[in-house]
């Protein structure tokens, strides 16, 4: 554990505000996505670019759900407080009043989590096809194009290798803005390849899940089978002695929760993230009774023994680095 970083990692409000400024520039390509990480970014003007485009479009798509109005000020979903946008960005998009964790995109997550410019993205050449010729109210290929334009991502998953406080690791992030972060053939394939690479390179593996959609319906049975495929790769990784840290963020549900996200040697979660198997509405409709207040939150899952630690976004780096040190760094 590197103690020199520690002070700045504390979630104390004033400190965090003083020391941190996060650059969440729109990382369209993802390949050079590793930008300034929190504690290292200088307080010069370039670090504070205008609000990222990605976030705005995502918010615009779901104004009622977890969104924020556009502009300089925004309201917190957790406590209703009005927050200055720049302030929020500085705090890694966590509400300074109530610690509500806002959505962040996969590239932003990578840049928060990994050392500056250390991320090297893999498998950017894989993209989705439409194996079923699926069309609901909108054909799947059109939906893909729209989602790509909206998020600036190729698919719901970014994967690659990088360094976290100097520790090499393989890191994958799913982005809940891209068709609810659902897992289709591409996400399954990227993750499987990454796990295979991690096995071969004997590197720790961190997967940050933000997938409310589970398996992607538009690719039908192929999506379901990705669950089996990724888990089989994890089995091999597990047998080879690899360290897998799964980080659950809001939301992690369905086929993603029921496959790789639950299988970490260590399972961390951000506070108050929605984590579970069946969606709360489905459960509500099935049991026809009042659900517990904290049903399917990180805290609920922690209380029931399926999560090891709930970790504030600002502490995530420190915590991951710490457990990697405990479990040993296999070179």
């Amino acid at each position: 554990m590197s103690s020199d970083d520690k002070p700045s990692e504390k979630p104390t409000k004033d400190k965090a505000a003083k020391d941190k400024s996060v650059e969440t520039r729109s990382e369209k390509t993802g390949t050079n996505g590793a930008t300034t990480s929190a504690e290292k970014s200088a307080e010069n003007g370039t670090a504070n670019k205008p609000a990222p485009k990605i976030t705005d479009s995502w918010v615009g798509a779901n104004p009622n759900k977890r969104g924020v109005p556009e502009g300089l000020w925004l309201g917190c979903d957790g406590c209703g407080a009005t927050i200055f946008r720049k302030e929020l960005e500085k705090r890694l998009r966590v509400c300074p009043e109530c610690n509500h964790h806002f959505y962040i995109s996969a590239p932003a997550r990578i840049s928060q989590l990994l050392d500056q410019d250390s991320f090297e993205e893999w498998f950017t050449n894989i993209s989705s096809l439409d194996p079923l010729g699926f069309a609901d109210r909108k054909p799947y290929p059109e939906r893909l194009v729209a989602e790509r334009a909206k998020t600036g991502l190729d698919d719901a998953c970014i994967t690659g290798r990088g360094y976290l406080r100097g520790r090499p690791l393989v890191c994958a992030v799913t982005d809940s803005a891209f068709i609810m972060g659902s897992m289709g053939s591409v996400v399954g394939e990227k993750l499987t390849r990454s796990i295979e690479q991690a096995t071969e390179l004997k590197l720790p593996l961190v997967i940050v899940s933000g997938s409310g959609g589970g398996a992607r319906m538009h690719e039908g049975i192929y999506s379901l089978m990705q669950m089996g495929k990724v888990c089989a790769a994890l089995a091999r990784y597990h047998e080879a002695g690899g360290l897998f840290i799964s980080v659950l963020t809001n939301p992690t549900m369905g086929g993603v929760a029921a496959s790789f996200a639950s299988l970490g040697d260590l399972v961390f979660a951000e506070p108050k993230a929605l984590v579970g198997f069946a969606g709360p509405r489905v459960v509500q409709a099935t049991v026809k009774a009042q659900l517990p207040d904290d049903f399917q939150t990180s805290e609920f899952m922690l209380a029931h023994g399926f999560i090891d630690r709930i970790i504030h976004r600002a502490e995530l780096r420190t915590e991951i680095a710490r457990v990697i040190d405990y479990c040993g760094l296999r070179q």
Partner: peptide, 26 residues
Amino acid sequence: GAYPGVGAEERGQAYQIALNLREMSR
């Protein structure tokens, strides 16, 4: 489908299915 109920969630429906997927492959 697997049961979508409160008890099932409390007892880790997602985890148990995930575990089965991983272990069955071995």
